[in-house]
């Protein structure tokens, strides 16, 4: 029975992406579920004195984004909340990286993007539901763990 419950979730998500919510836009509820799963998977490999805080938002300008910060446990920062970050702030962060690439190709691609600042990192993707599923959160979090380990050279 456990196995069936475990397998049912990907099946249901596949059905949602391709049938039930095909081409649907992401909702804030989807983003909250995404952030929750991302946080739980990422924290499996994060040192116990640290925690991941997430903010999410569907932007009017460019898809949707989540913003993550790593803080000490016990800090008075909400674990997961709707973001009040202005679109212009995120756009400025995007500009630093994507527009530089666009000068070369003369084309601004709308691709999933990770942007790192000294305070936080952004994950910016389309406003479609298919990019913000729980399965996608698991894959993205594992990818980010890999980056964390490479960047901090944390393993002996």
């Amino acid at each position: 029975m456990d196995l069936w419950i475990l397998k049912k979730k990907p099946f249901r998500e596949f059905y949602d992406i391709h049938v039930h919510r095909k081409d649907a836009q992401v909702t804030e509820r989807d983003l909250e579920a995404y952030a929750q799963k991302f946080k739980s998977v990422f924290e499996l490999m994060l040192a116990e004195h640290l925690t991941l805080c997430c903010e999410y938002k569907v932007s009017r300008q460019f898809g949707a984004f989540v913003c993550f910060r790593i803080v000490e446990k016990g800090s008075k920062v909400a674990a997961i909340k709707r973001s009040s970050i202005e679109d212009s702030t995120v756009f400025h962060a995007i500009k630093q990286t994507q527009l530089e690439d666009a000068y070369g190709s003369n084309r601004l691609n709308e691709l999933p993007t990770r942007i790192y600042t000294s305070e936080c990192f952004y994950l910016i993707k389309s406003h479609f539901f298919k990019d913000w599923t729980v399965r996608q959160a698991i894959a993205d979090a594992n990818e980010e763990v890999k980056t964390m380990i490479q960047e901090t050279q944390a393993l002996a």
Binding site: L50, Y116, T117, E151, T152, A154
Partner: peptide, 14 residues
């Protein structure tokens, strides 16, 4: 820059 600023006590990973 982001990962360079994480507080280490002494490690970042579990």
């Amino acid at each position: 820059l982001f990962y360079q600023n994480i507080p280490r006590h002494p490690f970042v990973v579990k």
